[in-house]
Write a protein that binds this DNA or RNA. Structure first.
Lengths: 340, 340
DNA sequence: TCCGGCGATGGTAGCGCTACCGTTCCAGGC
DNA sequence: GCCTGGAACGGTAGCGCTACCATCGCCGGA
């Protein structure tokens, strides 16, 4: 007797069905839509699954149903603490719906972006979540022609590819500027990372400063110190040093809390009092912000909520539900502590 | 004329083959093992791929070949900066070999661990990387019977499931203890997170202290402050406060740099001089460690190398290469700066 | 009694790809 | 001239699952 040519030898749904004494299709229904089989059949199939140690093969299931129950995430860099809550919330939300997450890293300087997209599309995920928005025309085209739902996150765009959950980054910067203005700071500066999102926050800040100072032209230019990603504490310290060498300032907006922490530490090392000599505002409300000396005033964005919303978008679209609002602004809040 | 019942309408390998004027199997070979077709055929197929915008379906390919080109990673929590370099190196290494990474989060308190494993195994990855070692007997059994190669990482075990790349956590703690002893500190303490790995570092520390103090019984107990994961700067500050309320110490080992940073800040706030009044050692050599006031003495573990080694294991096993050494100790180094 | 409808189950035919086993053709040796 | 062998390519039959369309009872209503 000839054995099958191939096959992994693992137990299949057919085995389970045989043990349970039903047809394969009935076993499939028992597992995937339990309310469409009788209670007795359900019990028998479940028993058979336990006895055989059956684990479904989602490659086969996905191929047959063209639904892979897979979500894909593209991040510029995983090694960036800003996105941790976001990624965590996204995986958790997907897992709760029996979806898994495929992780892809594009790098900040998107050369391999197109290859990465192809590799992801080849897995036929039910949705793709982009951290930031997709810029390259080639990438946008690739995504569109794949027919896979896309969720852009974090930044707001005027013309999103498909669905979007994020925060208007410029407004974040503007809010920081407004606060510094309110507390009477007039000689202000920015320390900004060179990634896309941070640049937009910085631009929002400088624009707002320029707007409120329409009548005071001499102070209208805002010094900017640019640092290369990733943002670290040390980058923040050195950036403040560089800033103070060249300018006299009474306040600074940092595009991340990590940078701000470095600024606080450097200020202390130089005997500057925060906020009296120097007011400091960060971004992110990371888990250390309330415990810095002094506690950090910062802009809080609910990254976890962005992750959950992205998951909701993805699941709704993938499961055929109608998505009414395709663009959601998560919003932000200024958390005023002591540093500004 | 009846249309096919199903199908996504996307271009398939058969379409490509038709355009190129070859059989599907030849097109498959052209894409997967280019050196097994003639140069002319290869060119024609590549041309056809470009013209049609074909993207392979890896669900189908994986099902047919029982090789999914997928790696899976299980982390307790993504929202932990310790593993960032590791995850990044792992994804990068896998991507370079045309593999993708599936991400699963187990949570520190492994209740859903078994469900997560089933969900992962259902995707038939070519290998599973565990952060930490698998403890639950059920989980170990599930993994073993799945037949999927497993790489445990970070911690060393006497009896690994399969392959292992990590660091003997106890020795890390012991090295910290030895250093404090060398610089003459005798009243030492530990601040430890409550996760498994951190506990092992803490145990290594206390064991070493006890060993060197065989002759000084009165000082043989080491105060331990336990904090609940995740480790934050604030946890570090509060832990030091609690410690100083109850004990008089001249040095402290923190199971993470994040905690250590909090300790440095709290010490400064209390007017304690580091290292004169209090020597501090951290763990991780995170990207801020060189820039803290004062620069932090810490134990450095090359997380990226663990990630690369895990990828190497996974790829070797999955591609049928022989793996000679199945356990690799990555080692660590004590980075002596100014805090201890 | 007959019929329509509905709930439960099953048969069949793929999903898009690749393993396995040909077949064809030509170079090279005797 | 014949045979061998290897390179190039192709036909067929699945991989394990589910969509689609039956089929089979059984119940209530006319």
């Amino acid at each position: 007797m000839r054995r099958t040519r191939r096959g992994t030898g693992r137990t299949t749904l057919t085995d389970v069905a045989r043990v349970a004494g039903v047809a394969p299709i009935t076993a499939s229904r028992a597992l995937n839509s339990p309310d469409r089989v009788s209670a007795e059949t359900l019990a028998r199939v479940r028993q058979a699954v336990d006895n055989t140690g059956y684990v479904p093969n989602l490659l086969a299931g996905g191929l047959a149903s063209s639904r892979s129950r897979l979500g894909a995430l593209v991040v510029p860099s995983i090694a960036s603490p800003i996105y941790l809550d976001f990624v965590q919330a996204l995986t958790t939300s997907l897992n709760e719906a029996d979806y898994q997450l495929l992780l892809g890293e594009s790098g900040y300087h998107n050369a391999r972006e197109s290859d990465l997209l192809d590799a992801i599309i080849a897995r036929r995920p039910d949705g793709i979540v982009l951290t930031g928005t997709m810029h390259s025309a080639q990438g946008r085209k690739r995504l569109r022609s794949s027919g896979i739902p896309v969720v852009e996150t974090w930044g707001m765009t005027s013309r999103p590819l498909d669905m979007l959950a994020g925060v208007a980054q410029q407004e974040v910067g503007a809010a920081a500027a407004a606060h510094l203005n309110t507390i009477g700071r007039r000689r202000t500066a920015v320390i900004a990372a060179d990634d896309h999102m941070a640049s937009r926050r910085a631009r929002g800040f400088t624009t707002e400063v320029a707007r409120t100072r329409g009548a005071e032209p001499e102070a209208a230019t805002v010094p900017i110190v640019r640092i290369t990603a990733p943002s670290t504490l040390g980058q923040g310290r050195r950036a403040l040093s560089r800033l103070l060498e060249q300018h006299e300032v009474d306040s600074v907006f940092c595009t991340s809390d990590t940078i701000a922490l470095g600024v606080l530490i450097e200020a202390q090392a130089r005997g500057l009092s925060v906020p009296d000599d120097l007011a400091v505002i960060g971004y992110g409300d990371m888990n250390f912000a309330a415990d810095t000396p002094p506690p950090l005033t910062t802009v809080r964005v609910d990254g976890a909520e962005i992750g959950r919303q992205a998951a909701r978008f993805l699941l709704d679209k993938s499961q055929g539900r109608r998505v009414s609002r395709r663009v959601v602004d998560i919003g932000f809040s200024l958390v005023v502590r002591e540093s500004a």
